[in-house]
Amino acid sequence: MIDKFVSTRAEAMAGIADGSVILLAGFGAGTPEYLVAGLIEQGAKDLTLVVNAGGRDDGPIADLLASGRVKKLICSFVRPASVAGRLYQAGNLDLEIVPQGTLAERIRAAGAGVQAFYTPTAADTLLAEGRETRVIAGRNCLLEYPIHGDVALIDAWEADRWGNLTHRDSARNYNPIMAMAAKMAIVQTAHVVPLGAIEPANVHTAGVFVQRVLHVPG
């Protein structure tokens, strides 16, 4: 019987190695905050964190960065007045800024087995300096590579024991694509439902992309 549920946070976070690339989903909603606290507790270090933005002065992303376990941050923007902004300006954090659509597409590409792609986004900007560009169908394009995760931290509204997920409203955001792009997708779900309870056509993230699920009642 396939059963991806784990019963404790420690079990959910077990085995995350130093140096891992962590994909962290969320955009205002849909951030698996309980798992982020678990990652800090688990203690893996020299992490690369991939997340939409660098967060603020408090909250899960700020807490993770302040723990000193993140070596490199890949995201679409960082507020200068934030934990991430200060760490970077003090030379204590590597930073790779990626346009948000390119970030999402690089993650999607990793999950889809796309080895690289060209996009006009950022091709005529400072972000393209020293990088490979090519004119395709008359448009200047920039070469981009996928972002693979060792671990994805995922938020769900409902989950069954196969790991089929639904995400509530705009809390979906990065969750489906990050689950696909990581070797191990760890999910916190607000609700547990029996296998078959989610209408098959309404599964947002298929269980085949999910490895562990922890019930975290909201």
Binding site: P80, I97, Q100, T125
Partner: peptide
């Protein structure tokens, strides 16, 4: 997105994607 090429912290967000697409 930036007032100078030397801005210490870059704030790109999604504007570059929207602008070209």
């Amino acid at each position: 997105w930036a007032r100078s090429p030397d801005e210490p912290v870059k704030q790109v967000g999604g504007a570059m994607d929207l602008a070209v697409g």
